[in-house]
Amino acid sequence: MTDRQGGSDDDDNDDGEGDSIGTENTMRARADESRLKVWVLLSANRLGLVALLSVLVFASLIVFSVVLYPSLQLSIQRGDTIETGFTTMISVIVTGTTLVVSINQLVLSQENGPLGDQRRRMSNAEDFRTYTEEMLGSTAPSDPSNFLRALVAESQDRAERLDRLIHESDSAPDELQEQLEEFVDSLDGNAETVREKLDGSQFGTFDVVYAALDYNYSWKVFQVDRMVNEFGDSLSREEEEAFHDLKTSLTMFGPAREHIKTLYFEWALVNLSQYILYAAVPALVVAGAMFMFVGDGSFPGTTLGVDDITWVTVGAFTLTLLPFFIFISYIFRVATVAKRTLAIGPLILRDSQR
């Protein structure tokens, strides 16, 4: 029996006929994406990615000015070229920074509201925690990573209990036992991978959300429903309750993950606004200095065969792009996570494993 374990929500799938029950343990493996693409979109440190983009743009412009378009160096040495280019960049920086920060504040405005709305939010959060504590039989952890680990561990325990019941049953069909064994093996492997990633992860970093994406509860809920519908006539009342208990623990993971994901998005948008503002000020200073003080004859020498004015202009232009690099590095991650978690519940949007 092939044990293809693990998964993350909207990343799997299959035709739903029960011929492929197990899944890979990680989102990347299920989506069959290259490591480089996943690193750029999700796992790379966002400021590290900004630095990488800056280096790539700087190097590309230098190569372009020397190899592909040598006359660019002559154009740069004309004062009006620098003046026109950096005047435009000043306008772009001011407009773009204001727009991005305004949009972020609009998104975060949902956190503000009258007392009644805040009371309802608190009541809903407490109701969810109370229900979770009843399911776990203990106090629900307050740390997001430990909270998700507890839910994953509970679904793992309930799956193993169900597996024991079915294998000890005299009436359970052999086909159900085989499918459930593959399903539980897959769930165990996926759960262990996710719990290991969540161990020690701190909210505020992307680690908690990234680990949660690996647990494909949607596919597991679908498989539980399918097995109950297909073999329901042969199940005892205790076995039906065990299937229901497993489904309950899996479905609890969905809203918990979505809530933590939403909190991370808000956290990331706050960081994005701050970093763009931090980068915008030196970018404006550099653009203004180039516009006012740098022109023809300001840097007459050459370094490594490239005119010094070209080094200075390309470097200054790259620095003025920092707010934009910060923006796209964060949007890469936020948009990718949002796309991979559009559905909640047993809806599979991707066909990567068909």
Rank of each mutant, 00 (worst) to 15 (best):
M227W: 10
Y275K: 11
V55H: 01
A31L: 15
F203G: 02
G288C: 04
L74I: 08
L349P: 00
V224M: 03
I276E: 01
S123V: 11
L36H: 03
F231T: 09
G345H: 13
A150Q: 12
I90V: 04
P300A: 08
D32G: 09
M27F: 13
I276C: 01
V285C: 04
V57L: 10
Q353W: 07
G315S: 14
S43D: 08
L108M: 10
T318C: 04
L74C: 02
I326H: 10
V194C: 06
R226K: 13
F231I: 13
S65K: 03
E168W: 03
V101G: 05
F183L: 14
L47F: 15
R257K: 15
E240F: 04
K197G: 02
G189F: 15
G48A: 12
G232T: 00
D12I: 01
V194E: 05
D296W: 05
P255M: 08
M1G: 08
G204W: 09
V67T: 12
P255H: 11
L322I: 12
D199H: 09
P141K: 07
T248R: 11
E24F: 15
P141W: 07
F332P: 01
A44Y: 04
A289G: 04
A280P: 07
D143K: 10
A289M: 07
A256D: 03
G96I: 03
Q156D: 08
P346T: 03
T302D: 12
K37A: 05
R158K: 14
W219A: 10
S273E: 07
D9T: 02
V285A: 14
G297L: 09
E241D: 14
A159C: 14
R78V: 03
E196H: 11
D351T: 07
L136F: 14
L115V: 13
M27H: 09
S236K: 06
R30T: 06
A59K: 05
V209T: 06
F325L: 08
V101Q: 06
F299I: 07
L151W: 06
R333Q: 13
Q179M: 14
R46I: 12
T95Y: 03
D32R: 14
G79S: 15
S298Q: 10
Q156G: 00
T98P: 00
Q118P: 01
R30D: 06
W311F: 05
E192K: 12
D11K: 00
V40L: 12
Y217N: 04
P173E: 05
D19T: 11
A280W: 07
L72N: 09
V67I: 15
T23C: 06
L115C: 06
T95I: 13
S234I: 02
N112S: 08
F183A: 06
M290F: 02
T318W: 11
P282T: 01
S155Q: 12
S109N: 14
S273K: 07
E154N: 13
Y217F: 07
P70S: 08
E182Y: 04
P346I: 02
Q179W: 04
E181A: 13
G189S: 13
V152P: 01
E266D: 15
F128G: 12
S109Q: 12
T130A: 15
F291K: 08
A159L: 12
A125S: 15
W219S: 09
A279Y: 10
L342S: 00
P173R: 05
L61E: 01
T341G: 03
A279W: 06
E258W: 05
T84Q: 11
E17H: 12
Y264D: 10
F291M: 02
G254I: 05
I21G: 04
I331W: 11
